[in-house]
């Protein structure tokens, strides 16, 4: 069942003539874990803004084509209606955080839904815990490090328990272990709670193993879609400049020299297993 469906979606920001996305048609199914990638400036963030109604309701501009999210026609529904279904974690956490304490920031969305106090308390604690920042609840967000702020931004969206979470490079400021933890959290939300995930990411080496679907954009258009394995071995993806994980790259280098592994690895574990096999049999 599709939860996001766009048909020939074209959008132009106010004051410019060139559309930022052009004739974008994508279908995202319930429970998908999608990685949205492509060169910087290709329209990824713009497309994400369409998914939660910031476009066209906040940014105005000119939107053509069709877009339906969680069964709602985005153009005919207001942001707060769409926000019940779609949570957006911004690229830059400072654009999202504003309250005087972490806890208040995380509670803000729930307050707007007029949720009873006890339930709100529970939700906030749960979200803080999931994001691994329970101990920061009293701290002012602007005093936190970039990585900690990213976790707060994730917790505040998580608290709303949306059907769909759109995360725009949510781990860019995090150290690798911190990033891995966030990906694990996102993965758990996806696998256990069935939340549909749309992750904008360049660091495919870390994120690829969680995704079942990759969408590559280039110059405002959809360039490629497929499974991580299909995308990472596609010549076109390489030409567009998609960052192929080093594990897959090693496979490609070996293949060039006439050594074929049995399958295309995406993770280091898979690569090590495949190598072990040929090194032993040899």
């Amino acid at each position: 069942m599709s939860v996001i469906e766009t048909r020939d979606l074209t959008y132009t920001y106010p004051g410019v003539t060139k559309p930022s996305i052009e004739e974008v048609s994508v279908t995202i199914n319930k429970g998908d874990f999608v990685i949205l990638t492509g060169p910087s400036g290709c329209g990824k963030t713009t497309l994400c803004r369409c998914f939660n109604g910031l476009i066209p309701h906040f940014y105005n501009g000119d939107l053509e084509g069709k877009i339906e999210v969680a069964g709602l026609n985005v153009v005919d529904h207001q942001i707060h209606q769409i926000a019940r279904h779609v949570g957006l974690v911004f690229q830059n956490p400072e654009n999202q955080l504003f309250a005087l304490s972490v806890e208040k920031d995380v509670a803000f969305g729930l307050e707007n839904f007029a949720m009873p106090r006890d339930e709100m308390r529970k939700r906030v604690d749960w979200a803080l815990q999931m994001a691994g920042i329970s101990e920061l609840s009293e701290r002012p967000p602007h005093e936190l490090s970039g990585g900690q702020q990213q976790r707060v931004a994730i917790a505040s969206v998580l608290a709303m328990q949306p059907d769909i979470m759109v995360l725009d490079e949510p781990t860019s400021f995090l150290d690798p272990v911190g990033a891995e933890k966030i990906f694990e959290v996102i993965n758990e939300l996806n696998k256990k709670l069935g939340i549909t995930i749309i992750l904008v990411e360049h660091r495919l080496d870390l994120a690829a193993k969680y995704a079942n679907h990759v969408i590559v954009m280039n110059k405002g258009k959809i360039a490629l879609t497929g499974s991580p394995r299909e995308i990472f071995t596609s010549e076109e993806a390489r030409l567009i400049g998609v960052g192929i994980p080093k594990a897959t790259k090693l496979y490609q280098h070996l293949k060039k020299h006439g050594i074929r592994l049995k399958a295309v690895p995406v993770t280091t574990e898979e690569t090590a297993d495949l190598l072990r096999e040929i090194l032993k049999n040899d």
């Binding site: 150290d175 690798p176 272990v177 911190g178 891995e180 080496d205 994980p245 080093k246 594990a247 090693l250 280091t268 574990e269 690569t271 090590a272 190598l275 072990r276 090194l279 032993k280």
Partner: peptide, 17 residues
């Protein structure tokens, strides 16, 4: 909190060979 590069991870796993 740093993870080794992917290539290093692969070679660490194959150290016994």
């Amino acid at each position: 909190s740093i993870v080794p590069p992917q290539i290093t991870q692969i070679f660490l796993e194959l150290a016994d060979l």
